[in-house]
């Protein structure tokens, strides 16, 4: 069986993706993603030496907005879809480690 992407890799990627996959899913994705990635590697046939990567199809630059205030949402509108709220806040189970990366 093709295991270009073995279960350990699937678990690593699932962790990065914040997906708590079942054992079945891990096995299934290992097989399916391996097949897909295998196919994708057709790209290596091509010599792309000196080819510019194309992230945007449009040749557009310098799109800005002026520094002008626009109305914000009310606190209730902002929290209207919140699964859980406490007073004016979004509520989540306690955050332990400070993982922020700014």
């Amino acid at each position: 069986m093709n295991t270009k992407i073995d279960k350990a890799q699937v678990r690593r990627v699932a962790q990065l993706s914040r997906l708590e996959l079942s054992h079945e899913e891990v096995a299934q994705f290992s097989t399916q993603l391996s097949a897909i990635v295998e196919y994708i590697e057709k790209l290596n046939e091509l010599d792309t030496e000196g080819v510019e990567p194309l992230a945007h199809c449009l040749p557009v630059h310098n799109v800005f907005r002026e520094d002008l205030p626009r109305p914000s949402l009310s606190n209730d509108a902002a929290l209207a879809n919140a699964p859980e709220r406490e007073d004016e806040y979004f509520k989540v189970p306690k955050i332990l480690d400070d993982n922020s990366g700014a």
Binding site: V13, V51, L54
Partner: peptide, 30 residues
């Protein structure tokens, strides 16, 4: 959706970015 999130995360993850994502952007240009 999970399958595509997994595939995309894999293509961007360290060690694979150049081989997959960057390569794809170049072929996109072609």
């Amino acid at each position: 959706v999970k399958r595509r999130i997994m595939l995309g995360t894999y293509a961007l993850s360290s060690g694979y970015y150049d081989a997959y994502y960057l390569k794809a952007l170049k072929v996109r240009n072609l």
